[in-house]
């Protein structure tokens, strides 16, 4: 009985040590990546290529998701507010929700699923096919040529994608609230104009999306670089990217919201 208990405690201890070791490795990796980003000034084409791959190719899913999220929010807000005769506030409600929360969070979750998993798979496959080792033996630092451009592209793309998500979401809400449900377009636009604060709402939303961009891209490139170079190891790394990124984004959203929107 005691040996079974001791085995469990030992297993728990080993798992904890393993987790902290990975966190430590990941932190050192992040510092190396940030230091490697300086090399992008001399090779901007690497960054531009990755901005296309990571940012532009994620645009479609962001636009479509933003449109539907905005439309659904308009519908739900309308049905809730009409009982109080406050249906004119649909515009401001949708705009604030999108800028403060849904824009950054949903964009980051979609980004982790689309671009994050692709980054992990790409870097992991490069490791499995010895392309990273090959670069090292050609005296080329893979951190500078492979990891840094992808990391920076993720960090730059995320706030832009989140802004586009929120903008398209508001358009989707307009289509439903004004064009479909017949609300007056005047209050739909004027109320957000009065109520949305540049610093509190817009800037904070952008700060959130930058933080999510750093975390989601860091996890994605680290998982790829650190994966076991087999088909099974690569599959596990890709899954970890999506799961860990999503949980980290939701946790950080709570922390940032608590810090930003205190009264």
């Amino acid at each position: 009985m005691f040996s079974g208990l001791i085995d469990r405690v030992a297993h728990l201890g080993a798992a904890t040590i393993h987790s902290f070791r990975r966190l430590g490795r990941g932190s050192v990796f992040l510092l190396e990546v940030i230091a490697s980003c300086a090399s992008l000034f001399t090779r901007p084409r690497l960054l531009i290529k990755q901005l296309y791959s990571v940012g532009v190719q994620t645009l479609i899913i962001i636009v479509v998701a933003g449109l539907f999220v905005g439309m659904v929010m308009a519908l739900q807000s309308y049905y809730a507010l009409i009982d109080f005769g406050a249906e004119d506030s649909v515009g401001v409600m949708v705009a604030l929700s999108l800028m403060r929360e849904l824009g950054p969070v949903v964009t980051a979750l979609l980004f982790a699923g689309r671009a994050g998993s692709a980054l992990t798979a790409e870097i992991g496959l490069m490791k499995a096919t010895e392309q990273l080792s090959g670069m090292e033996m050609m005296a080329v630092n893979p951190m500078q040529r492979i990891v840094a451009p992808r990391f920076m592209a993720g960090v730059i793309s995320m706030p832009l994608l989140a802004t586009i998500f929120s903008a398209v979401g508001v358009i989707g809400a307009y289509l439903v609230a004004v064009e479909l449900l017949g609300l007056d377009s005047g209050p739909f636009w004027s109320q957000p104009q009065n109520k949305v604060d540049l610093y509190l709402d817009l800037y904070n939303g952008i700060i959130k999306s930058v933080v999510f961009g750093v975390v989601a891209t860091w996890i994605a490139v680290f998982e790829g670089y650190d994966c076991i170079p087999t088909s099974e190891g690569l599959g596990q790394a890709t899954t970890r990217t999506v799961v860990h990124s999503s949980l980290a984004i939701l946790f950080l959203d709570f922390v940032l919201t608590a810090l930003m929107f205190t009264k």
Binding site: M126, E130, Q131, G134, E136, M137, M138
Partner: peptide, 19 residues
């Protein structure tokens, strides 16, 4: 080390070409 590697060539089993 990178300077030394510029004077070394290595042929990997898989070729390790950049795809």
């Amino acid at each position: 080390l990178f300077e030394l590697r510029q004077r070394m060539g290595m042929l990997f089993q898989s070729g390790a070409l950049l795809t």
